[in-house]
Nucleic acid binder design. Structure first.
Lengths: 337, 337
DNA sequence: CTGTTAGCGCATTCAC
DNA sequence: GTGAATGCGCTAACAG
């Protein structure tokens, strides 16, 4: 096994053509004769030439790499976004670095600082729940590199935002429950300092208002929407027999709540109809009748990366926001027994 | 916001000290006086110097980066391994690149080729299900860079393997069911060309043999262990009323099978006791009584990366295998109603 | 269209 | 212990 290190100079020497021409040919420049280009490419292949990206990076001060920073990859939604990002990135010849903040501001700052050191050409980010100061992102921007926010909105200047229309999705989800005849719909809400959860709560409130249902504050439960929270909230639901519907702002809490309710003899959806924000296929396994708000995660990833890359390539930075529609998936109850 | 580009030469000029000394000081070389070192570090901080990693990489032909290649990050097991890898890597000053093969050999080959181009210093890999040819990995090895296999064994030369003791874990899992009184234990098995699934099946077989239970081939179901497979196999279990136990070689199939069985009125674990290979916390939510083989994913990630990094740093490549113990988690049934 | 020249920023010989 | 000199491999400006 030979430790290859064929350089453009090797090709240059063998062919008697200057290395700069070799470089141009290898970069498919149009300032090289088709003939010599073919000659060079042929010889390059023959010698097993592989471009030294490190040298190229240093020279151009670009890395052909973008980073995606998000809370955690184990969540199906984020994993799917990543798949979309990678597809576009690969098509356009970019590498993708995946970074997990675990919703910690400190980790997020370290990550950004590391991405600056490593000269990534652009960043896609879903900011951590703790993030309210954007100096680390501004310092990345000072290198004239673009940032695209996805999933979690952020109003930093000169950035693109890509989100789903949380308000509308929540409105339709709640309206669906109302149309099924629910009169007392509980809402699992996230912390209201997070813009996204605020939007979702607003959609819920607006649907009630439109259908002239009086708001009952005691039906709104605010938490971190963890599995434990789901069980705690399920107990509160059991304590209030009026409740006949549940709209959960996130699937994790909804799933564990459903499990708990079922173990207590509650029938889903007959006794309590549930709609949850969701992308994880596991939900359909747990409760086949569950109606879910399906977020276009893959599309979001594709959109986000293609916008980021086009910004990298024409250095245009503008404030722009995109709202993607989500889809309400209504499954027929399949527990026929 | 200033586009920083302070170099060692800037520091050199301001201080009247040669740039090579500055470089040495910045690398904490012991061939420079403590005094001048302090002076330089102080001035570096003052000027906001940040090492240009691109240049450093080119010069040293190292990147301080390792890659982890695995089928998919959305599986909880792999996500947890990654967390372990990242912890060690961060401690030792390495970056981690995460790559998903989606169990495709073609994608895996492209990934390795890309990692070669990007000069990563070492690779951690759980090979794709389709991989049976190792030329791509050999070509990575030809650059004298180490490879560590985790989770899925591979007998490539000069490599380290880190796996859990699948045979023993399966043996204990099956024995647990036997001790609970099961007489007819079904086994969800993976494809037998995968070493890992072979080992798990062997553990099942050996436990039966030890307890003098006659092997019934019709109780062994071989599949890809997907959700759909789980439901198909659950139907087969229903068709065979003798079955009173199930040992599943992987959690995905077990979870959907349990769901289906429960929807058909089967009680878990009273009618059929189940043990599944598992790390995903969702399983406990779905079936709180489920006994699971808990793989030490985080430990595996830490072990794998620390071995890889030590190989990178002392260039020692030896054949070594490590077996980690897994833990059988027996939960008391909590559906008391 | 091709060759000449000149670095990108750093780390590492070799002198002293 | 420090400075001077060199080049990692590639690309880009400038000629011609």
């Amino acid at each position: 096994m030979n430790q290859k290190k064929v350089t453009i100079h090797d090709i240059s020497r063998v062919l008697g053509i200057d290395s700069s021409t070799v470089s141009r040919a290898l970069n498919d420049s149009d300032r090289v004769t088709k003939k010599t280009k073919e000659l060079i490419l042929q010889k390059a292949k023959e010698l097993g030439y592989q471009r030294n990206i490190l040298a190229s990076n240093l020279r151009t001060n670009k890395t052909q790499t973008i980073a995606i920073v998000l809370p955690r990859i184990s969540r199906y939604f984020f994993a799917t976004v990543i798949a979309g990002v990678e597809q576009i990135a690969q098509e356009k010849g970019y590498n993708v670095i995946i970074c997990q903040s675990f919703d910690s501001f400190e980790r997020e700052k370290k990550i950004i600082s590391n991405l600056i050191s490593n000269r990534v050409d652009g960043i896609l980010i879903s900011i951590s729940m703790e993030t309210s100061n954007y100096d680390h992102l501004k310092s990345y921007q000072s290198f004239k590199n673009p940032i695209v926010f996805f999933d979690r909105p952020c109003n930093l200047e000169n950035c693109v935002n890509i989100n789903i229309d949380n308000f509308r999705a929540s409105f339709l989800a709640t309206e669906h429950l109302l149309q099924k005849g629910c009169k007392h719909i509980a809402h699992f809400s996230g912390k209201q300092n997070i813009e996204l959860y605020k939007q979702r709560k607003n959609g819920y409130l607006d649907a009630l208002k439109k259908h002239q249902i009086e708001l009952d504050e005691s039906l709104i439960f605010e938490s971190n929407l963890s599995e434990e929270d789901g069980i705690l909230m399920a107990k509160k639901i059991l304590a209030n027999p009026k409740i006949d519907g549940l709209y959960s702002s996130n699937d994790t809490a909804a799933i564990s709540a459903i499990q708990y309710l079922k173990s207590e003899g509650i029938k889903i959806p007959e006794d309590i109809a549930v709609v949850g924000f969701n992308n994880d296929p596991i939900a359909a396994v747990i409760e086949p009748s569950l109606t879910t708000v399906n977020q276009p995660a893959f599309e979001m990833g594709k959109k986000a990366s293609s916008l980021l890359i086009s910004q990298i390539e024409d250095k245009s930075t503008v404030n722009q926001s995109f709202l993607l529609e989500s889809e309400l998936i209504i499954r027929e109850s399949s527990n026929k027994k």
